[in-house]
């Protein structure tokens, strides 16, 4: 429930209270003790009532202008001054309580202004009472206290309702946020899974061939395929790790697999880390991973980051290395005196 809903509901209830008070309590008193001046005040209040009723019926949300309060206060002055001597706060004073309810009705969203207007109304009535000088102080005190305390009570309750509504709205928003975050995390996990399946391309056919016994691990070619798949898989696992230098992290992962296979690998790094998109990292690492998978004895992996380029190279004593091709990186593979050299370059600028 928003502030607006709280105020609209309060205003509806107040409207019923005001209509009832005006018809049941004020009208008979006015008819009994009336002279022309208070009828003007009554008519003024009826106009305000009609406007507020129209406002509520139309479901409009904006606050009433402060001038509505001034009109109500003017009616208060008219009604109070028209009272016969010493009639203030007595049965003939039809307006005192009613004006308070009117002020609540038009100024409920503005507590400070409302309290000021109520105080002004009470003060003026008390001043008029004191000016006449022959009224019963005890009755006046009871009337003022009972009337205003009830109205201030309504104001306080409205304030509490507004505060609770705001708390509830904040809690609801937080709950919604949590739901959204949960949904996003779920989506991300799904994307990750889909990405893994796409990346596993080389592995799944190999597993299928092995399971169907179409290939045998006794073959050199199959062992090479296994080796390539192992390096690819290890790189894929490293791809989503949250590390300061993801490219180096992936290279290290590939080196680790080759070292487990008994290849002596040295890794040299130069230059400072620069952000490299995941797609580019995949292409930069792939040729080197392939050469490492085929390496038999020694390999040297290097990562060089110059002001304009990122270069990943491998020099290894590998037999057959399939030439790689990149879309965003330039790959160059060559063989010199039994050593395969493969380098992937990516221009950062």
């Amino acid at each position: 429930m928003t502030d607006h809903a709280v105020f609209t509901t309060t205003r509806r209830v107040l409207l019923v209270v005001v209509v009832a008070t005006q018809l049941v309590l004020a009208l008979p008193a006015l008819v009994e003790h009336g002279s022309p001046a208070p009828w003007i005040a009554y008519a003024l209040l009826c106009c305000v009532l009609a406007i507020v009723a129209g406002h509520v019926a139309a479901g409009r949300s904006e606050r009433f202008p402060a001038v509505a309060g001034a009109v109500v206060l003017a009616a208060s002055v008219l009604a109070t001054t028209a009272l016969p001597e010493g009639a203030s706060f007595g049965p003939a004073d039809w307006a005192f309580g009613l004006i308070g309810w009117y002020l609540l009705l038009v100024l409920v969203e503005r507590p400070v202004l409302l309290v000021a207007a109520l105080a002004a109304h009470v003060c003026f009535s008390v001043a008029w009472f004191a000016h006449a000088g022959n009224g019963d102080v005890g009755t006046a005190g009871v009337v003022i206290l009972s009337g205003t305390s009830f109205q201030v009570g309504v104001l306080v309750i409205t304030g509490v309702l507004v505060r609770d509504a705001r708390l509830a709205a904040a809690a609801a928003a937080e709950h919604d946020d949590a739901r959204t975050r949960e949904e996003l995390a779920r989506q991300r996990e799904q994307d990750l899974k889909a990405g893994f399946e796409g990346q596993l391309g080389a592995l799944l056919p190999l597993l299928a061939d092995l399971a169907d016994e179409r290939v045998s691990v006794a073959d050199e070619a199959t062992r090479l395929r296994c080796s390539v798949a192992a390096v690819q898989l290890r790189r894929l696992f490293a791809e989503n790790d949250d590390v300061p230098d993801p490219l180096l992290h992936e290279l290290t992962a590939c080196v680790d697999v080759a070292e487990r296979r008994g290849v002596a690998v040295s890794l040299a790094v130069s230059g400072t880390a620069t952000p490299v998109p995941t797609e580019v990292r995949r292409e930069l690492v792939a040729p080197m991973a392939q050469a490492l998978a085929a390496a038999t004895g020694r390999a040297k992996v290097s990562l060089l980051r110059t002001p304009s380029e990122v270069r990943v190279a491998v020099v290894a004593d590998a037999g057959d290395v399939l030439p790689h091709r990149g879309t965003v990186v330039t790959v160059e593979t060559s063989v010199h005196s039994g050593l395969v050299r493969s380098e992937a370059r990516w221009r950062t600028t």
Partner: peptide, 16 residues
């Protein structure tokens, strides 16, 4: 400079 860093072999660099 880059080839020497990558290969650690001057013979290899010369050939390349």
């Amino acid at each position: 400079l880059v080839e020497w860093f990558q290969s650690e072999s001057k013979e290899f660099v010369a050939q390349r």
